[in-house]
Design a binder for these strands. Structure first.
Lengths: 189, 189
DNA sequence: GAAAACATTTGTCATTTGGCAAAAAGCAGT
DNA sequence: ACTGCTTTTTGCCAAATGACAAATGTTTTC
């Protein structure tokens, strides 16, 4: 739980009582490799915080190809914003890539905290805005890079994730086939 | 100015007095084709709202290639968030692709409004979160599409922009060379 | 309305990446 | 250690895209 508190306090100050209100609503949740945190077609009702493990957000394009949109590792929030905020069906799956340990908040608890704790909404907005900007910064450069550069950049920026995810997921994240990725890895050594 | 008010009211309610406070701080600004709204290496000090015209955000990658990260057209906010919020140097240029008419707010006025108008911050947060999600939704799919699909999707989703931007900018947005794009266009007809 | 500047198209060829299938390697359960 | 299952690597060839240069088309300026 310490990790969550540290994470939150990076974005703003809260007193001890407020922190206890928040941690009081938090539940631990374990998800096993390959299981889903939330699914396409369902309404997302939880906010999660990754204590341990790697997750991914993925969907299927109109050719049925599975696309990995992002990876989420330790000390990050995991939530399908669009679905959670607007109570609409999600269009993506959030899946555990490895066994994961999360802290989760139900939607009702989350909203209660927003109404109870002064300044909590400002913190949440900051967290969300930063997370969204980070997603753009990670994903956007891939568009203009060739396959080898994509892989090298990924290696450089996310060395902690690299060896914990299957090749097929990484390929679907980088937008290349897994055989291409395999060849690229061979050539780099 | 009506456009701005309508835009804002999509995200929350404000009374007449509050709206007047906001519009009272607004200034009209015209930017001519190819001129910059904000520049890399400088600190962004304005929030803009596009009344007329198309703008783009672009930067140069480590090979010196110019990359167009997004296009922004009518009835959208234009601001380099990272730079504006944190008063740090921007890493991107915001440029007018056509002659543009904007409404702008200075940073000090913008902050004063945030401190004065109850509920304005919530509206702003919503606007920003939505804009960021939109940017991801637009840019991310390009990673896994081939060049022809990228162009077709663009045509379909942004027909209003298509004929107002030079081919080279579109190519640099789609992550393909302009000769490839030219050939793709030929083959589609 | 010519000249110059810029934007787009086209040609040629090299390189990259994809598609598909088979082989090899890695892993889990017994 | 063997079996079955999944993941990754490899081979082969086709298709897509890039690089570069030249040609054509379009716009701007004087």
């Amino acid at each position: 739980m310490k990790e969550l508190v540290n994470f939150i306090l990076q974005y703003g100050n809260l007193n001890q009582q407020q922190i206890e209100l928040i941690t009081g609503k938090a539940t631990e949740l374990e998800i096993r490799k390959d299981d889903y945190f939330s699914e396409a077609g369902k309404i997302s009702t939880q906010v999660g915080f990754v204590l341990d493990g790697v997750m991914r957000v993925c969907y299927y394009d109109n050719k049925g190809e599975e696309i990995t949109k992002y990876f989420i590792d330790e000390n990050n929030l995991v939530v399908d914003l669009e679905s959670f905020q607007n109570s609409i069906c999600s269009s993506a799956y959030v899946q555990a890539v490895t066994d994961c340990k999360l802290i989760v908040f139900s939607k009702s608890d989350w909203e209660e905290l927003l109404n109870t704790i002064v300044g909590w909404d400002a913190i949440v907005h900051k967290i969300i805005a930063r997370a969204l900007m980070q997603k753009i910064d990670r994903r956007s450069p891939l568009v203009s890079e060739d396959a080898t550069t994509r892989y090298l950049s990924f290696m450089e920026k996310y060395p902690k994730i690299l060896n914990r995810i299957p090749l097929s997921y990484l390929a679907s994240y980088l937008g290349i086939t897994q055989s291409s990725l395999s060849r690229i890895r061979k050539n780099i050594r």
